[in-house]
């Protein structure tokens, strides 16, 4: 060990004795980090599927309501559920 190395070690040893400042987290730091961590965390595959499934369900319900609304004008017909097509074969099959 050179003279400098020995002196450096002594200087470092003295530096290690320096009084450490408070090592506790500042007030509110932990809560802030916890909130930010969850806010910025990527979503899990499960939650992505859940959101997609809910949107699909809402879409399907919308389509159902729309189809029902289109059928309402035909409810007073003699055969309300008869297909609205002028197709002989289809009408025959329907009556059978």
């Amino acid at each position: 060990m050179t003279s400098f190395d020995a002196k450096w070690q002594q200087c470092a040893a003295r530096a290690r004795q320096a009084v450490l400042r408070d090592e506790n987290a500042p007030f509110g730091f932990a809560t802030r980090i916890a909130a930010r961590a969850f806010a910025s965390q990527p979503q899990s595959l499960e939650s992505v599927w859940q959101r997609l499934a809910l949107r699909l369900l809402a879409g399907a319900l919308g389509a159902l309501v729309l189809a029902a609304a289109m059928e309402v004008p035909h409810l007073r017909d003699t055969h309300p559920l008869e297909p609205g097509v002028a197709d002989t074969v289809a009408q025959l099959v329907w009556r059978l």
Binding site: L20, E23, N24, A25, F29, A30, T31, I33, A34, A35, A37, F38
Partner: peptide
């Protein structure tokens, strides 16, 4: 979130050192 905050509190001295 409380557990996350507790984890930060516990690890903070090590990290700040």
């Amino acid at each position: 979130q409380d557990a996350a905050a507790a984890l930060v509190e516990a690890l903070y001295p090590q990290v700040i050192r």
